[in-house]
Write a protein that binds this DNA or RNA. Structure first.
Length: 306
DNA sequence: CATTAATACCGCCAGG
DNA sequence: CACCTGGCGGTATTAA
Protein backbone atom coordinates (compact mmCIF):
# COMPACT_ATOMS: atom_id res chain seq x y z
CA UNK A 1 0.00 0.00 0.00
CA UNK A 2 2.85 2.29 0.90
CA UNK A 3 4.62 1.65 -2.39
CA UNK A 4 1.43 2.31 -4.26
CA UNK A 5 0.96 5.61 -2.50
CA UNK A 6 4.52 6.55 -3.25
CA UNK A 7 4.10 5.89 -6.94
CA UNK A 8 0.84 7.84 -7.07
CA UNK A 9 2.54 10.68 -5.32
CA UNK A 10 5.49 10.70 -7.68
CA UNK A 11 3.17 10.57 -10.69
CA UNK A 12 1.54 13.73 -9.40
CA UNK A 13 4.87 15.36 -8.74
CA UNK A 14 6.18 14.50 -12.16
CA UNK A 15 3.01 15.68 -13.81
CA UNK A 16 3.13 19.03 -12.06
CA UNK A 17 6.75 19.43 -13.05
CA UNK A 18 5.81 18.74 -16.66
CA UNK A 19 3.00 21.23 -16.32
CA UNK A 20 5.43 23.88 -15.07
CA UNK A 21 7.73 23.32 -18.04
CA UNK A 22 4.79 23.48 -20.41
CA UNK A 23 3.47 26.69 -18.88
CA UNK A 24 6.91 28.20 -18.96
CA UNK A 25 7.48 27.28 -22.60
CA UNK A 26 3.99 28.45 -23.51
CA UNK A 27 5.07 32.02 -23.06
CA UNK A 28 7.13 31.61 -26.23
CA UNK A 29 4.20 30.52 -28.37
CA UNK A 30 1.23 28.23 -28.56
CA UNK A 31 3.35 25.41 -29.99
CA UNK A 32 6.96 25.05 -28.87
CA UNK A 33 9.32 22.22 -29.70
CA UNK A 34 11.69 20.87 -27.09
CA UNK A 35 13.92 18.34 -28.78
CA UNK A 36 11.60 15.71 -30.21
CA UNK A 37 8.71 16.85 -28.02
CA UNK A 38 6.06 19.38 -28.94
CA UNK A 39 4.46 21.44 -26.22
CA UNK A 40 1.09 22.93 -27.08
CA UNK A 41 -1.05 25.40 -25.27
CA UNK A 42 -4.66 25.85 -26.30
CA UNK A 43 -7.00 28.49 -24.93
CA UNK A 44 -10.07 27.96 -27.08
CA UNK A 45 -12.45 25.08 -27.62
CA UNK A 46 -12.73 25.57 -31.38
CA UNK A 47 -13.35 22.23 -33.02
CA UNK A 48 -10.42 21.12 -35.12
CA UNK A 49 -9.84 18.33 -37.55
CA UNK A 50 -6.72 16.65 -38.78
CA UNK A 51 -5.24 13.44 -40.00
CA UNK A 52 -3.01 12.58 -37.16
CA UNK A 53 0.35 11.00 -37.72
CA UNK A 54 1.16 8.07 -35.47
CA UNK A 55 1.46 10.02 -32.28
CA UNK A 56 1.73 10.00 -28.52
CA UNK A 57 0.14 12.83 -26.57
CA UNK A 58 0.24 13.47 -22.86
CA UNK A 59 -2.34 15.86 -21.52
CA UNK A 60 -0.69 17.91 -18.79
CA UNK A 61 -3.62 20.16 -18.03
CA UNK A 62 -7.20 20.26 -19.20
CA UNK A 63 -8.82 17.66 -21.42
CA UNK A 64 -9.87 16.87 -24.94
CA UNK A 65 -12.76 15.13 -26.60
CA UNK A 66 -12.14 13.42 -29.90
CA UNK A 67 -14.34 11.88 -32.52
CA UNK A 68 -13.33 9.08 -34.82
CA UNK A 69 -16.32 8.42 -37.00
CA UNK A 70 -18.98 7.32 -34.54
CA UNK A 71 -16.54 6.69 -31.76
CA UNK A 72 -15.91 9.19 -28.99
CA UNK A 73 -12.70 9.35 -27.01
CA UNK A 74 -11.92 11.59 -24.04
CA UNK A 75 -8.78 12.07 -22.07
CA UNK A 76 -7.61 14.57 -19.50
CA UNK A 77 -4.66 15.62 -17.37
CA UNK A 78 -2.41 12.70 -16.51
CA UNK A 79 -3.74 10.57 -19.33
CA UNK A 80 -2.22 9.85 -22.70
CA UNK A 81 -3.58 9.33 -26.16
CA UNK A 82 -1.90 6.93 -28.53
CA UNK A 83 -2.62 6.96 -32.24
CA UNK A 84 -0.87 4.22 -34.15
CA UNK A 85 -1.93 4.92 -37.73
CA UNK A 86 -2.90 7.98 -39.70
CA UNK A 87 -6.47 8.52 -38.53
CA UNK A 88 -8.90 11.35 -39.27
CA UNK A 89 -9.70 12.84 -35.90
CA UNK A 90 -11.92 15.75 -35.10
CA UNK A 91 -12.36 17.16 -31.65
CA UNK A 92 -12.09 20.02 -29.26
CA UNK A 93 -10.55 20.87 -25.92
CA UNK A 94 -12.79 20.86 -22.89
CA UNK A 95 -13.40 24.27 -21.40
CA UNK A 96 -10.01 25.85 -21.74
CA UNK A 97 -9.48 29.53 -20.99
CA UNK A 98 -6.60 32.01 -20.99
CA UNK A 99 -6.34 31.47 -17.24
CA UNK A 100 -6.50 27.71 -17.53
CA UNK A 101 -5.23 26.74 -20.96
CA UNK A 102 -5.05 23.13 -22.04
CA UNK A 103 -1.43 21.94 -22.04
CA UNK A 104 -0.24 18.93 -23.97
CA UNK A 105 3.06 17.24 -24.70
CA UNK A 106 3.26 15.21 -27.87
CA UNK A 107 5.76 12.98 -29.58
CA UNK A 108 5.66 11.53 -33.07
CA UNK A 109 6.17 7.80 -33.02
CA UNK A 110 9.22 6.97 -35.10
CA UNK A 111 9.03 3.69 -36.96
CA UNK A 112 12.81 3.39 -37.11
CA UNK A 113 13.10 3.55 -33.32
CA UNK A 114 10.33 0.99 -33.00
CA UNK A 115 11.93 -1.37 -35.48
CA UNK A 116 15.09 -1.01 -33.49
CA UNK A 117 13.43 -1.95 -30.19
CA UNK A 118 11.31 -4.74 -31.63
CA UNK A 119 13.77 -7.60 -31.01
CA UNK A 120 14.00 -6.58 -27.36
CA UNK A 121 10.23 -6.48 -27.07
CA UNK A 122 9.91 -9.91 -28.67
CA UNK A 123 12.22 -11.31 -26.05
CA UNK A 124 9.53 -11.24 -23.44
CA UNK A 125 6.30 -10.59 -25.32
CA UNK A 126 4.62 -12.10 -28.34
CA UNK A 127 4.04 -9.53 -31.09
CA UNK A 128 1.15 -10.64 -33.32
CA UNK A 129 1.23 -9.92 -37.04
CA UNK A 130 -2.02 -7.97 -37.02
CA UNK A 131 -3.74 -5.98 -34.31
CA UNK A 132 -7.17 -4.37 -34.28
CA UNK A 133 -6.59 -1.51 -31.87
CA UNK A 134 -5.25 1.63 -33.52
CA UNK A 135 -6.10 4.26 -30.96
CA UNK A 136 -6.53 4.37 -27.23
CA UNK A 137 -5.90 6.17 -23.99
CA UNK A 138 -4.03 5.20 -20.87
CA UNK A 139 -3.11 6.73 -17.55
CA UNK A 140 0.53 7.73 -17.62
CA UNK A 141 2.59 5.72 -15.13
CA UNK A 142 5.57 7.37 -13.39
CA UNK A 143 7.97 5.31 -15.52
CA UNK A 144 6.61 7.15 -18.57
CA UNK A 145 6.34 10.59 -16.99
CA UNK A 146 9.86 10.42 -15.65
CA UNK A 147 11.76 10.42 -18.96
CA UNK A 148 9.45 13.11 -20.30
CA UNK A 149 10.21 15.33 -17.31
CA UNK A 150 13.93 14.63 -17.72
CA UNK A 151 13.79 15.60 -21.36
CA UNK A 152 12.00 18.82 -20.53
CA UNK A 153 14.67 19.70 -17.96
CA UNK A 154 17.19 19.86 -20.81
CA UNK A 155 15.20 22.65 -22.37
CA UNK A 156 17.73 25.39 -21.68
CA UNK A 157 20.83 23.42 -22.54
CA UNK A 158 21.18 22.86 -26.29
CA UNK A 159 24.36 20.81 -25.93
CA UNK A 160 22.88 18.38 -23.42
CA UNK A 161 19.79 18.23 -25.58
CA UNK A 162 21.61 17.15 -28.73
CA UNK A 163 23.45 14.40 -26.86
CA UNK A 164 20.77 13.20 -24.49
CA UNK A 165 17.53 13.65 -26.40
CA UNK A 166 17.99 10.50 -28.49
CA UNK A 167 18.45 8.01 -25.64
CA UNK A 168 15.58 9.56 -23.70
CA UNK A 169 13.31 9.42 -26.74
CA UNK A 170 14.26 5.78 -27.05
CA UNK A 171 13.40 5.27 -23.40
CA UNK A 172 9.98 6.86 -23.86
CA UNK A 173 9.34 4.71 -26.92
CA UNK A 174 10.28 1.63 -24.92
CA UNK A 175 7.88 2.55 -22.13
CA UNK A 176 5.14 2.93 -24.71
CA UNK A 177 5.96 -0.38 -26.36
CA UNK A 178 5.77 -2.24 -23.08
CA UNK A 179 2.55 -0.47 -22.07
CA UNK A 180 -1.04 -1.54 -22.67
CA UNK A 181 -1.13 -0.51 -26.35
CA UNK A 182 2.39 -1.72 -26.98
CA UNK A 183 1.56 -4.34 -29.58
CA UNK A 184 -0.36 -1.78 -31.63
CA UNK A 185 2.62 0.54 -31.63
CA UNK A 186 4.88 -2.35 -32.46
CA UNK A 187 2.98 -2.77 -35.73
CA UNK A 188 4.55 0.45 -36.94
CA UNK A 189 7.95 -1.17 -36.79
CA UNK A 190 6.87 -4.06 -39.00
CA UNK A 191 7.14 -2.69 -42.53
CA UNK A 192 4.96 -5.45 -43.97
CA UNK A 193 2.25 -5.55 -41.36
CA UNK A 194 -1.23 -4.78 -42.67
CA UNK A 195 -1.17 -1.89 -40.27
CA UNK A 196 1.92 -0.24 -41.76
CA UNK A 197 0.75 -0.88 -45.34
CA UNK A 198 -2.62 0.68 -44.71
CA UNK A 199 -0.92 3.65 -43.06
CA UNK A 200 1.02 4.14 -46.27
CA UNK A 201 -2.19 4.23 -48.29
CA UNK A 202 -3.79 6.67 -45.85
CA UNK A 203 -0.92 9.14 -45.93
CA UNK A 204 -1.00 9.00 -49.71
CA UNK A 205 -4.69 9.80 -49.64
CA UNK A 206 -4.11 12.66 -47.24
CA UNK A 207 -1.44 14.16 -49.49
CA UNK A 208 -3.36 13.69 -52.73
CA UNK A 209 -6.79 14.54 -51.49
CA UNK A 210 -8.24 16.10 -54.63
CA UNK A 211 -6.78 13.65 -57.11
CA UNK A 212 -9.28 11.35 -58.76
CA UNK A 213 -8.46 8.13 -56.97
CA UNK A 214 -9.47 4.59 -57.61
CA UNK A 215 -9.47 2.15 -54.75
CA UNK A 216 -7.64 -0.46 -56.76
CA UNK A 217 -4.79 2.03 -57.29
CA UNK A 218 -4.72 2.58 -53.54
CA UNK A 219 -4.56 -1.13 -52.96
CA UNK A 220 -1.56 -1.08 -55.25
CA UNK A 221 0.13 1.55 -53.12
CA UNK A 222 -0.48 -0.59 -50.08
CA UNK A 223 0.85 -3.59 -51.97
CA UNK A 224 -2.26 -5.71 -51.59
CA UNK A 225 -5.07 -7.12 -53.69
CA UNK A 226 -8.28 -5.10 -53.47
CA UNK A 227 -9.94 -7.82 -51.41
CA UNK A 228 -7.26 -7.98 -48.72
CA UNK A 229 -6.87 -4.24 -48.84
CA UNK A 230 -10.51 -3.81 -47.95
CA UNK A 231 -10.27 -6.25 -45.09
CA UNK A 232 -7.20 -4.65 -43.56
CA UNK A 233 -8.43 -1.16 -44.15
CA UNK A 234 -11.64 -1.78 -42.30
CA UNK A 235 -9.76 -3.47 -39.50
CA UNK A 236 -7.48 -0.53 -38.86
CA UNK A 237 -9.78 2.41 -39.56
CA UNK A 238 -13.26 1.01 -38.98
CA UNK A 239 -14.29 2.41 -42.35
CA UNK A 240 -14.26 1.23 -45.95
CA UNK A 241 -11.61 2.93 -48.09
CA UNK A 242 -14.02 4.90 -50.23
CA UNK A 243 -16.01 6.11 -47.25
CA UNK A 244 -12.78 7.12 -45.59
CA UNK A 245 -11.72 9.06 -48.67
CA UNK A 246 -15.07 10.79 -48.74
CA UNK A 247 -14.82 11.79 -45.08
CA UNK A 248 -11.36 13.15 -45.71
CA UNK A 249 -12.54 15.34 -48.55
CA UNK A 250 -15.57 16.60 -46.69
CA UNK A 251 -13.64 17.40 -43.52
CA UNK A 252 -11.09 19.27 -45.59
CA UNK A 253 -13.90 21.10 -47.34
CA UNK A 254 -15.45 22.04 -44.02
CA UNK A 255 -12.26 23.63 -42.74
CA UNK A 256 -11.70 25.38 -46.09
CA UNK A 257 -15.18 26.83 -45.94
CA UNK A 258 -14.59 28.14 -42.45
CA UNK A 259 -11.13 29.62 -43.00
CA UNK A 260 -11.20 30.76 -46.63
CA UNK A 261 -13.79 33.00 -48.16
CA UNK A 262 -14.45 30.60 -51.01
CA UNK A 263 -17.74 29.76 -52.63
CA UNK A 264 -19.26 26.38 -51.98
CA UNK A 265 -18.81 25.40 -55.61
CA UNK A 266 -15.12 26.34 -55.60
CA UNK A 267 -14.47 24.38 -52.43
CA UNK A 268 -16.35 21.39 -53.79
CA UNK A 269 -14.09 21.48 -56.79
CA UNK A 270 -10.88 21.97 -54.83
CA UNK A 271 -11.43 18.85 -52.74
CA UNK A 272 -12.12 16.76 -55.81
CA UNK A 273 -15.87 16.92 -56.40
CA UNK A 274 -16.73 17.92 -59.93
CA UNK A 275 -20.41 18.01 -59.06
CA UNK A 276 -21.51 20.59 -56.46
CA UNK A 277 -24.80 18.74 -56.27
CA UNK A 278 -23.14 15.58 -55.10
CA UNK A 279 -20.88 17.54 -52.77
CA UNK A 280 -23.80 19.24 -51.09
CA UNK A 281 -25.64 15.99 -50.67
CA UNK A 282 -22.74 14.13 -49.08
CA UNK A 283 -21.86 17.10 -46.89
CA UNK A 284 -25.39 17.21 -45.60
CA UNK A 285 -25.32 13.52 -44.89
CA UNK A 286 -22.09 13.75 -42.85
CA UNK A 287 -22.55 17.01 -40.97
CA UNK A 288 -26.31 17.26 -40.77
CA UNK A 289 -26.51 20.58 -42.61
CA UNK A 290 -25.74 21.63 -46.19
CA UNK A 291 -22.39 23.43 -46.64
CA UNK A 292 -23.64 27.00 -46.83
CA UNK A 293 -25.88 26.77 -43.79
CA UNK A 294 -23.36 24.77 -41.80
CA UNK A 295 -20.61 27.38 -42.16
CA UNK A 296 -23.02 30.24 -41.50
CA UNK A 297 -24.16 28.53 -38.34
CA UNK A 298 -20.73 27.66 -36.94
CA UNK A 299 -19.47 31.17 -37.77
CA UNK A 300 -22.34 32.68 -35.88
CA UNK A 301 -21.83 30.32 -32.97
CA UNK A 302 -18.18 31.31 -32.59
CA UNK A 303 -18.71 35.08 -32.93
CA UNK A 304 -21.63 35.26 -30.54
CA UNK A 305 -19.55 33.41 -27.95
CA UNK A 306 -16.63 35.87 -28.10
C1' DC B 1 -6.62 -14.51 -54.54
C1' DA B 2 -10.87 -14.44 -57.72
C1' DT B 3 -15.81 -14.27 -58.33
C1' DT B 4 -20.06 -12.21 -57.58
C1' DA B 5 -24.41 -10.05 -56.03
C1' DA B 6 -25.84 -6.11 -53.52
C1' DT B 7 -24.94 -1.45 -52.63
C1' DA B 8 -22.95 3.20 -52.61
C1' DC B 9 -21.38 6.89 -55.07
C1' DC B 10 -21.05 10.06 -58.82
C1' DG B 11 -22.40 13.47 -62.06
C1' DC B 12 -26.32 15.30 -64.57
C1' DC B 13 -30.84 17.44 -65.17
C1' DA B 14 -34.87 19.86 -63.44
C1' DG B 15 -36.83 22.80 -60.26
C1' DG B 16 -37.35 25.42 -55.57
C1' DC C 1 -27.07 34.49 -58.66
C1' DA C 2 -25.49 31.01 -55.66
C1' DC C 3 -27.13 27.30 -53.15
C1' DC C 4 -30.03 23.36 -52.04
C1' DT C 5 -33.03 19.16 -52.99
C1' DG C 6 -34.83 15.23 -55.58
C1' DG C 7 -34.77 11.76 -59.18
C1' DC C 8 -32.11 8.74 -62.57
C1' DG C 9 -28.80 5.56 -64.71
C1' DG C 10 -24.17 3.92 -65.15
C1' DT C 11 -20.18 2.38 -62.69
C1' DA C 12 -17.06 1.55 -58.81
C1' DT C 13 -16.97 -0.35 -54.42
C1' DT C 14 -18.02 -3.61 -50.83
C1' DA C 15 -18.37 -7.82 -48.32
C1' DA C 16 -19.31 -12.70 -48.59
Amino acid sequence: VLRQNESVLSAENLLSEIRRHALDAARLGSVVSVGPLLLSRVETSEPDYQISDPLFILMAQGGKRLYLGERRIEYSAGQCLLVTTALPLSGHFLEPSPRHPALAVSLRLRSDLITDLLPELRRYQHVPATVDETIGTLTAPPALLDPIARLLRLRDDPVDMTVLAAPIEREITWRLLTGPLGVSIAQLGLPHSGHAQVTKAITWLRDNLAEPTSISALAGIAGMSTATFHRHFRRTTGMAPQQFHQHLRLQQARSLLLTQAETVTAVAHSVGYSSPTQFSREYHRLFGLPPGRDTAQTRQASTSRS
